[in-house]
Simulated scan of single mutants.
Amino acid sequence: MDWTLEVVVVPVSDLDASVAFYRDRVGFHLDHDTDAGFGRIAQLTPRGSGCSVVMGTMPNLRAMPPGTQHGLQLVVADARAAHAELVGRGVDCDEVVVLDERDGGTLFGFRDPDGNSWTVQEIRARAGQPLIPRADDA
Rank of each mutant, 00 (worst) to 15 (best):
F28K: 01
V9S: 04
P11I: 02
S49Y: 14
R102W: 12
A81Q: 04
A17H: 12
G115S: 09
N116I: 12
D103C: 03
P133T: 14
A17T: 14
D24F: 10
Q43K: 13
S49F: 12
A81Y: 06
Q43C: 13
G115D: 00
A77S: 12
P46K: 13
M1S: 15
H83A: 04
L99A: 07
T68R: 10
G27N: 09
W118H: 01
Q121E: 03
G50Y: 09
S117Q: 06
L107V: 01
L30S: 01
S117V: 09
E6I: 11
S49R: 08
A125G: 09
G71V: 14
L86G: 04
Q43Y: 11
R89H: 10
P46T: 10
L99V: 04
D2G: 03
T119A: 07
S18H: 14
A17K: 09
R62K: 14
G48R: 02
G56W: 04
V26A: 08
T34W: 10
S13R: 07
D31Q: 11
S117N: 13
G128M: 03
G67D: 08
G67K: 08
D103N: 10
D100E: 03
A127P: 01
L99Y: 08
V75E: 00
R124L: 00
A84S: 01
H70N: 15
A82D: 06
D31W: 00
R124G: 05
A127Q: 05
R23V: 02
S52T: 15
N60T: 03
D14L: 10
R80I: 11
R102M: 01
R47Y: 15
P66I: 03
V54E: 13
T45G: 08
D112M: 08
V75W: 01
A82F: 07
G37W: 06
L107T: 07
R80Q: 05
T45Y: 07
T119M: 06
Q43T: 03
R126D: 02
C93R: 04
F28N: 05
D92K: 00
L15C: 14
L30A: 11
T34K: 12
D16R: 11
M64Q: 12
F28L: 12
D94W: 02
Q121L: 14
T119L: 12
Q121K: 14
A77D: 12
L107R: 13
G88T: 04
W3G: 15
L99P: 03
R134K: 11
V87P: 00
T45Q: 11
Y22V: 06
R40N: 12
A17R: 15
G67Q: 10
I132A: 05
D103E: 06
V96R: 02
V97W: 01
V54M: 09
F38V: 15
N116D: 02
G50E: 11
M55A: 12
M64R: 15
G115P: 04
A17F: 03
T45A: 12
V8N: 04
T106C: 02
G115M: 04
Q73S: 11
L30R: 03
Q43M: 12
S52C: 03
V54Q: 13
Y22H: 13
R62E: 13
T4E: 08
V7L: 09
G104S: 00
T119Q: 13
L72W: 04
M58S: 00
I41D: 05
A127T: 05
F38Y: 15
Q129W: 06
P65Y: 02
V12A: 07
A36F: 15
C51R: 03
G56D: 01
A127N: 00
D33R: 01
L72M: 08
W118Y: 13
L72G: 07
